[in-house]
């Protein structure tokens, strides 16, 4: 039904069907126009003026963000936000992603080098001890009785 299409009660399939049929059947377009006009009349009858502050609340963010206001002027004061951040999240510059990645890779490299040189040192120590042992044995064998 045209009414359910206008009121948003139609299922996605019915909506698609209506959108497909509308350009093909001018009488359907006329019917849609009639239904819409009657609903428009009802909605206008039920209109209720909203409180004036709602206009400010609705449009104020866009007043500030007006892109047609010309080039941005440099303010003659410094704005320092001293209000504590209530959010649980922080936002940082994108460059920190690369800094963090570099720090992480550096940490991994240092860890690898630490293990590498530690085992190198252990190996050298073991060799030293082996040599020492051989030397001791050699000395013991060559002690004249």
């Amino acid at each position: 039904m045209v009414e359910s299409y206008v009121l948003g009660l139609a299922t996605p399939e019915e909506r698609e069907e209506m959108e497909r049929l509308l350009p093909q059947y001018p009488e359907l377009q006329t019917e849609l126009l009639i239904v819409e006009n009657t609903f428009h009349k009802l909605w206008l009858e039920d209109a209720y003026p909203p409180p004036i502050e709602l206009r400010q609340r609705t449009l104020r963010p866009y007043d500030w963000a007006d892109t047609n206001a010309g080039p941005e002027k440099k303010p003659n004061y410094t704005f320092i936000n001293i209000a504590p951040n209530q959010s649980d999240f922080i936002t940082v510059h994108k460059v920190w992603k690369w800094i963090f990645l570099a720090a992480f890779l550096l940490f991994k490299l240092c860890l690898f080098l630490a293990f590498f040189f530690y085992f190198k040192y252990r190996q050298a120590e073991d060799r030293q001890q082996d040599r020492e042992k051989v030397r001791q044995e050699y000395q013991n064998q060559n002690i004249p009785r």
Partner: peptide, 24 residues
């Protein structure tokens, strides 16, 4: 385009019926 005058115009024209409908 984000024109503020167009937004004001739309609000002034349709806010009352939308508000009436939302109250319903």
């Amino acid at each position: 385009e984000g024109n503020i005058v167009a937004k004001q115009w739309l609000y002034d024209r349709y806010a009352a019926p939308l508000y009436g409908h939302l109250i319903q």
